[in-house]
Design a protein around this nucleic acid. Structure first.
Length: 302
DNA sequence: CTTCTTGTTACTGA
DNA sequence: ATCAGTAACAAGAA
């Protein structure tokens, strides 16, 4: 369940592996996961071929993140948007000579999960000059979209209704407050919508509400300035901490070297419904909000 | 076997 | 129109 901390941790762990690497070939084992948006019409070419031709021989310049999307920037200014949805993974396996060089210089030994790649859930394979990047996705909900430039990406209304980036400068208490005023319904629903602030999913919505001592069922129209401020501070506190620990590895999430994130051990309420609150011992309430499992403490959160 | 899981979109009904 | 709620997507774990 990659949310902002997981996607950002993946971005940071992936960057040193693939920055300035050249794409030698691209293998697509599940065509429905890829497409080429905004490219000129080549009716005779199937989308997989367009996707491959667009990427091969390009150098990867940078990786950016917008909300839970990763964006690979290629040398000619074209882009690949990657969304992991629930079970997507990007794992890099260096070439053997690079691995031995790393081991000699005292680097980490490669993880088992890397050495067994590709596996039965590997659907896209990027052969780079210095190693191989695998896109795995057990439930096949993720996607990799090619765009010739940022203009095409923005025209695709992919980011149309996205809210503030919580790690950027414009995430101020004023902007957060004014966006909250335009939203309706309860807090959890609003967080999941991504329209006020992006990047919170099921895990961090519950964790932020607990840290701010406000129930996820609380209607946003009833939030007092002090409560908005507590939510704001909780977001600014929790997301960087989670990134520092490499995100939360629930189920399938992995970092680029195949290792797991360690923030799951810090979870206070997520997936703990029915268990005692770690602060006061009250049994945590388990409920469903907009179809998503939600946990909170009746005593600590108001 | 059934139920539950999640990010996002599409759909449904008010 | 707008908005809220939910089915759908798919595969695996319990």
């Amino acid at each position: 369940m990659p949310e902002l901390p997981e996607v950002e941790s993946l971005r940071r762990s992936l960057l040193p592996f693939i920055q300035e690497a050249k794409i030698v070939s691209v293998e697509v084992l599940l065509p429905k996961l890829v497409s080429s948006k905004g490219t000129t019409r080549k009716a005779d070419l199937p989308k997989v071929t367009i996707f491959q031709k667009s990427l091969v021989n390009q150098q990867i310049i940078d990786i950016q993140r917008r909300a839970k999307n990763l964006i690979l920037i290629l040398e000619n200014g074209s882009l690949v948007l990657i969304h992991l949805k629930m079970t997507g993974q990007l794992v890099f396996k260096p070439k053997l000579e690079e691995v031995s060089a790393k081991l000699v210089s005292g680097g980490h030994p490669i993880e088992l999960s890397q050495s067994t790649l590709p596996n039965k859930h590997t659907y896209v394979i990027f052969e780079l000059d210095r190693g191989t990047l695998f896109y795995n996705d057990i439930r096949q909900f993720g996607y990799l979209l090619f765009y010739p430039d940022f203009k095409a990406l923005e025209a695709d209304k992919h980011f149309e209704n996205l809210g503030l980036e919580p790690l950027e400068k414009d995430f101020t208490i004023e902007n957060f407050t004014s966006r909250l005023k335009k939203a309706s319904g309860n807090l959890k629903k609003v967080f999941l919508e991504q329209t006020v602030v992006v990047g919170l999913g099921n895990i961090y919505s519950d964790e932020v509400c607990f840290a701010a001592k406000i129930k996820p069922t609380h209607l946003v129209k009833d939030l007092k300035p002090g409560e908005i401020s507590a939510l704001y501070e909780a977001i600014l506190d929790i997301l960087p901490k989670a990134i520092k620990l490499g995100g939360s590895s629930i189920a399938n999430y992995l970092l680029a070297d195949g290792s797991r994130g360690n923030y799951a051990r810090e979870h206070k309420v997520y997936n703990r419904g029915g268990q005692p609150c770690l602060v006061c011992g009250t049994i945590l309430t388990k409920t469903t909000i907009t179809g998503r499992t939600t946990a909170y403490c009746e005593h600590c959160q108001k």
